[in-house]
């Protein structure tokens, strides 16, 4: 079902692209924005300042990304330490990484909706870093553990209850197969 849907969308898109002659239909500017500005990005050039340390973008895009293989580590309200009861989840990830020596894991830190977007980016990152430190204590090489904070931008449960908040304060594990 899902595959068929993707195929038909792709077909429809190819047809639309062929009909309009638009080279990249997906990057078309949204229409109907107030003010009718013609300068929606990107229209200028794109560059990166030369003095940056590489993050490991070699793992980006080209490799096989596996999400949802492991249970998320949950956190207390505004907490950023891995609680005893949650450690077993990280230990499973460590076992997996030991058995799959070329794989890399991204610890994706998330928060509940309370608090500023910016503070939650820092809090989510601290959660990811706490899990990273725990994985390192289990013998996993630091170079194989990335962190990424989504702050409060990606709730797993979009509700506004204590129960929703509880599952949203989490670190998800995403494996980058190399």
């Amino acid at each position: 079902m899902t595959t068929r849907w993707v195929v038909s969308v792709t077909l429809a898109c190819s047809m639309a692209a062929a009909m309009t002659g638009c080279k990249s239909w997906w990057s078309k500017k949204p229409t109907g924005t107030a003010g009718g500005g013609s300068d929606i990005l990107p229209t200028g050039t794109e560059s990166t300042q030369g003095d940056l340390k590489p993050r490991g973008d070699e793992f980006n895009g080209t490799n096989n990304v596996v999400a949802g293989q492991f249970d998320a580590v949950l956190f207390a309200f505004d907490g950023a330490t891995v609680e005893d009861a949650e450690r077993a989840k990280a230990e499973k990830v460590a076992e997996f990484l030991k058995a799959n020596a070329s794989d890399v894991v991204v610890c994706e830190g998330n928060c509940d909706e309370r608090g500023s977007a910016e503070y939650n980016m820092s809090l989510g990152e601290r959660r990811g870093l706490a899990v990273r430190a725990y994985l390192m204590s289990l013998g996993i090489d630091a170079n194989r553990i990335q962190t990424k904070s989504y702050g409060k931008e990606r709730p797993k449960d979009t509700g506004h209850t204590e129960a929703a908040w509880r599952v949203n304060r989490r670190v998800d594990f995403v494996v980058l197969k190399n």
């Binding site: 050039t45 794109e46 560059s47």
Partner: peptide, 15 residues
């Protein structure tokens, strides 16, 4: 110019 430059892409957050 509408040019965009990445000025920080270190590991972790860049805010």
């Amino acid at each position: 110019t509408n040019n965009r430059t990445c000025i920080a892409n270190y590991p972790g957050i860049n805010m």
